[in-house]
Design a protein around this nucleic acid. Structure first.
Lengths: 157, 157
DNA sequence: ACGATTCCCGATTAAATTAGTCAAGAATAA
DNA sequence: TTATTCTTGACTAATTTAATCGGGAATCGT
């Protein structure tokens, strides 16, 4: 099965953002480093994600992009729709003469849609290795925050 | 969710073929009439489907295309793979340094793949309205075959 | 064997989408 | 204020999708 690389970039970016401890922003540069893609192109994709209110941009030093909604409320379908706009919708039943093949097609297409709508970012993160990874990140963050506290103490003295 | 129109054409064609009573061949012209698409383009898609052994061509008058396997053995994933070749495969775990985002991506991608592999043409046809339609087609065919028998009788006399 | 039908094959072109690049501007933290 | 970082828009290149054309090969009915 081929999924467009556009979709892959978008989803991978969302995953990276989703995994940030405390939803701390990631810069475009941060995001681009993981995937090998030009930053200006990824920027365009992020713009789409922003328009769809899936991420938000934070300007200035320390800024970047962060997730703009609850992880359980963002589905794979949402992400795909955000980046490849222009999605067709099922014609009204009334438009007469629509063939049975057409009906079958739309049914299929809707079940794919539903499947993808059922997978949230939260679901994807609910895996053992991911959780372990996140746990480590948090530990690391605590350590460094303790260290910086100590540092401030030291300077003050 | 956007599915490429290439995929849509392929799936719709397969559906049309699948619904033929007695797997009687449909010509390119028959297939193109339902969808609005150029016949030469559809021909290219059918060539891919043929290479993947999903359909077979029958030349000469009365010929056309017909399904080349059991309907229960042809999945949506098979059809998609046939028309957009060039499908990536998950990198070996050994290639070191592969990120956790990458793992998550491939897991997702595999679950989509599995989902699509689980939907066969037979499944899609297992719907009440489709069955009713097929039933009517068969009745019609019986009627006309009886009529043509009668016709032959008449000529012979 | 002939003629009509229909798939088969290759090359070529056009349109659409995806991917990448560049440059100037606006917000913000330190 | 200055460095950082997103924002915006326009433009180009590469790739994929869609369409077109022409001739060839198999097969059916007569």
């Amino acid at each position: 099965m081929k999924i467009s690389s556009k979709a892959r970039y978008a989803i991978q970016s969302m995953l990276q953002l989703a995994m940030q401890v405390d939803n701390k922003p990631l810069t475009l540069a941060d995001l681009t480093q993981q995937q090998n893609i030009s930053s200006s192109y990824l920027e365009q994709l992020l713009a789409s994600l922003r328009e769809s209110k899936l991420v938000m941009g934070v300007r200035g030093p320390g800024g970047g992009y962060r997730i703009a909604a609850d992880l359980a409320d963002i589905s794979i379908a949402d992400i795909l729709m955000a980046v490849h706009e222009r999605h067709l919708t099922r014609p009204k039943k009334s438009s007469y003469g629509i063939s049975i093949y057409n009906d079958m097609w739309w049914d299929l297409s809707e079940s794919i849609q539903n499947f993808l709508s059922d997978i949230s970012l939260a679901d994807l993160m609910d895996r053992e290795d991911v959780q372990t990874y996140l746990h480590q990140q948090r530990l690391f963050k605590d350590m460094t925050s303790v260290a910086s506290q100590a540092e401030k103490q030291r300077k003050r003295a």
